[in-house]
Design a protein around this nucleic acid. Structure first.
Length: 198
DNA sequence: TCATTAAAGTTAT
DNA sequence: ATAACTTTAATGA
């Protein structure tokens, strides 16, 4: 959790509900609010000229989205699209900055969260610049699995569709499926009713 | 080798 | 029902 719910309540953050595939904000919009997810999943993405999607990130409960843009006077370079129905705290940026001014502890919290997002970007950029699609996919899976303590083989169920994995790694779905099949043959993953165990 | 296209089956809304 | 996802196969860069 980035900012405690009590604090957000106390400064008058509103609570908004979003349905699946709704946009919280879109590329080009000017950032005016701090958003923190209470429940649900959000993806940050871009669509290229041919309509192909690239997912920058998937965020869930307790995380904030698009907060980095509040610190610079620039429009959003990505969309925030709802994956699973969301309940979200919405706080005007002025109040958000007042809050930061009042608490160095909160500043650290935000810095920590930003650093985590940056870390993910580093890892994924490293992966994606690798030409080998198997490396890209294992890189993604390693990152996701790193948040659970159980390191045993097949102990982690990838919470993504193959479509999403493809969009996160810049591969096409078919390639993703093919590579995952090879991994299954090589005992790198197991597949249990279409879910990938890693 | 991987992306793209097409086609068909499966699952989710 | 209809859209979204999964899978296989053929073809081309």
């Amino acid at each position: 959790m980035v900012i405690k719910e009590e604090i957000l309540h106390s400064v008058g953050a509103s609570i908004k509900h979003y349905r699946t595939s709704e946009f919280i904000f879109q590329e080009g919009d000017l950032p005016n609010y701090y958003y923190q997810i209470i429940k649900g999943d959000v993806k940050l993405n871009n669509y290229n000229e041919d309509g192909k999607e690239f997912i920058q990130n998937i965020l869930s409960e307790g995380q904030s989205c698009g907060e980095s843009l509040l610190f610079i006077e620039k429009p959003y370079p990505m969309n925030a699209e709802v994956l699973k129905p969301c309940t979200i705290f919405k706080l005007h940026k002025d109040t958000f900055f007042q809050l930061l001014n009042s608490s160095s502890k909160l500043c650290l919290k935000i810095s920590n969260f930003l650093a985590q997002r940056l870390y993910y970007k580093f890892i994924m950029m490293q992966n994606i610049s690798n030409q080998n699609p198997a490396v890209r996919l294992t890189g993604l899976m390693d990152y996701l699995k790193s948040f659970q303590n159980d390191e045993r083989l097949y102990s982690f169920m990838i919470p993504l569709t193959r479509q999403q994995m493809a969009s996160l790694t810049g591969l096409c779905v078919e390639t993703t499926i093919r590579i995952i099949k090879v991994m299954e043959r090589n005992k790198v993953v197991r597949i249990k009713n279409r879910k990938i165990l890693y």
